[in-house]
Design a protein around this nucleic acid. Sequence first.
RNA 1: AGGCGCGUAGCUCAGUGGUAGAGCAUUACCUUGACAUGGUAAGGGUCGGCAGUUCAAUCCUGCCCGCGCCUACCA
Length: 919
Amino acid sequence: MEKSYKPAAIEKSWYQKWEEEGHFSPSGGENPYCIMIPPPNVTGTLHMGHAFQDTIMDSLTRYHRMMGYNTLWQPGTDHAGIATQMVVERQLEADNLNRQDLGRNNFLKKVWEWKEQSGNKISDQLRRMGASLDWERERFTMDEGLSEAVIEVFVRLYEEGLIYRGKRLVNWDPNLLTAVSDLEVIATEEKGHLWHFRYPLTNQNGYLVVATTRPETMLGDTAIAVNPDDLRYRDFIGQTVELPLCNRKIPVIADNYVDPSFGSGCVKITPAHDFNDYEIGKRHNLPIINIFTPSAAINKNAPKSFQGMDRYVARKKIVNELQAAGLVEKILDHVILVPRGDRSGEIIEPYLTDQWFVNTKPLAQPAINAVKEGRIKFIPENWSKTYFDWMENIQDWCISRQLWWGHRIPAWFDNEGKYYVGRSEDEVREKYQLKENLSLNQDEDVLDTWFSSALWPFSTLGWPKETSELKSFYPSTVLVTGFDIIFFWVARMIMMGLKFTGDVPFRQVYIHGLIRDQNGQKMSKSKGNVLDPLDLIDGIDLETLLKKRTFGLMQPKLQSEIEKSTRKEFPQGIKAFGTDALRFTFAALASTGRDIRFDMGRIEGYRNFCNKLWNASRFVLINITTIPKPQKGEHLSLPDRWIRSRFSKTITEVNRQMENYRLDLAAKALYEFTWNEYCDWYLELTKPVLQESEISVHKLNATRQTLIEVLEGLLRLLHPIIPFITEEIWQKIAPLAEIEGDTIMLQPQPNPKSYAVDQAAEESINWIMSFLLGVRQIRGEMDISPNTPLSVLVENASENDLKHLEDSRLFLNQLGRIESITIIEDGEEKQTAATALLGGMAILVPMAGIIDTDKEKSRLIKKSRNIISDLEKINAKLNNINFMERAPKEIIAKQRDLGKSLSRDLDQINEQLEKLSQI
RNA sequence: AGGCGCGUAGCUCAGUGGUAGAGCAUUACCUUGACAUGGUAAGGGUCGGCAGUUCAAUCCUGCCCGCGCCUACCA
């Protein structure tokens, strides 16, 4: 093996081998374990969020595969309607073309080309992450089979009356020229104004003042509303006002919606361009006057002088003209919530159009029940509250989009605007017995991308056919996803899954946090703080990183700022840490919080961890070149028994944490065992055995066997998180453990029962550790060189101490660089010494020239001060009647014991101090 | 407006009703035959604040302060 761990050298080949040999496909068997990947955008690239999520899913998948489950991790990609269409349109823009220039068919051809060209990129990046996805089953939401599922679902929902078409006020993106759903609208707080306008009364002098944040909508006003209980306006109800600039009379109506304390207490009502006003309009039978074109310019329903103007140009003109007419009461600064499209960033307008909707309430109820009844569990459980809140107030879902890229709606229109829904034109003609010469045109619109995503858990498995895959893997075991798409995706999958399969789509929903940068900021191109997972794996030099972060910025102004911060953060660029280190980092960060700050310090630390594992394995391989003869338990050394015991407990702990989705705690247990126990102590403790010439062959072999067995098991335990390095090492270790197999990934997880728990051995090793710690402290604090051999005396040794001492001399001598250990009676030792305490026993290092008396004095004084303060706390408790009466017995006993041992320590320290003072 | 989350060492974060933890960073010493991507030791914290429950609170409860997120129709 190489002297140090070089990830690039080992990661390349293993993945290819695993995939070629079909190790990712389900093994068959009784117990299924299935995860559906949240399909990434087919034209996208892997970002930190993906890498994090995929690490979690892959670790879970590999773990359960090794636990003997029939494991499927289903891969695939999403067509991501708007996002993908926008990318291709932007490419056309470069050639001064738009999609209309190409026409629908040619445009779609372009999108498919782009999909083919870039669609494999993210799959390849997933491979770099080590993701053990069953690629043979890779799906795409616009595959034939999945499209069939989409049509089937649409038609069935329509036939049941759960999909309807209607003219409704929807969220309209005037830039993309499509409707979007409520969820795709982001409300942002922005500075605006509250304009107060005077609407003159028609049958008397005076006016009513209305307040608005969107003056241009006045052109579509059809009423003004006041609160019926508002005494100021009570008398005006039923009168009319003159709508300025429009030459129209509109009524004053009363509606409880109006809050008298806001603005002027009078609200202008524009039913065509405001959701509330729309509802009020319906209640009062108001006319609905649409004043916008699809791109939100003023249309022909408004006065001539405004027609054709963009809404914001019109706004200015309206304000100016009202001002000139003396109809502006005042203009106040006002922070408003501006609705913007999540893709385009454009200000969304409520707009009256014909759209397709899903009637969600009947679907939501069973989906609520499924979670209430525990058939689906959220992890952490708290997220179910978020889910309920939304589901219980769910609104109908606008599913039609005026785009070209996506699943075209299976509805056909005749020339009169009558429409027929069916699986195909032929089916429609037959079903509705349409005349052959009736011309039909399919609806131009496509479905919301999330409509097909909602079917993902069963459409990928072949539904509506009753496939064996569906039988085996539906419901899937767990959905792993971020909280940001609980509404978009999780809720809708549950609704659709229950509706069309009669069962939940997954039994658990593991909600993880979102990856942020080291300052807790969302990673985004415009902030210039994006980390590419592949750059962490392969490394990147500063110049390339700078180029990457500043290339194609929307606001070139930001360039110098981004350059500066990047140079500061990564003066040397980014080192290559390898996939395993990145994965271990993600696992270690996967705690229950919402924000996960990615910390470069940690990935470096876990790269070092990999190196540690690498070198520990080298140590084992250097010392063991032939298969050790199996030995009986009696030949195991104390450290052998100890490490087996610790490993058994570690396996149990890791299993527990994996089952609880606490990958961070699993990673922690693995890290601590590997580094702090196996490497720091066990390997050190084997050195005396491996190097001792007089050791028995049995003992030697028992230690060799333990070294191998524990390392081999540890590699398997680590494999789900760090697959590459464990495979590489395992290939060399497994033969020495007499294990045959092509790959570690198909080996079973280690069984805690294969390694005996041994409390006695743990106690003994703890004693040894304490002994060595005491000696090392003296060395460290007294500046005694690690090379200086020490003669050590022990005083007040109990029988137990003597037994431990007898069992461990070999280890103490070598690990503590101790020449001799002499047992002495209390007070026998006359010369002064540096002292360490181990239970009731004192470990003395005679000072004879090597130790500074004053230093030792101050060291002991400091120690005694700590003990005294602890002791005071304990005595206060023990003297507290309430404590003695009410605390549990064990706690009292524990405190008493602690107090005793502390005062014993204190006595000994004082004794030593006295001795030192006598000099 | 409602809901949720967070506040623990300089930084990033675990954690528990009964003696506060890790990694990184810092300091000192060490190139000893697995590993300097390392070893040994050290320093560092009123666990955001106040009150309550309790024999005992960093942990449970309430209030407050600070930060963040989500949902929502205040024109």
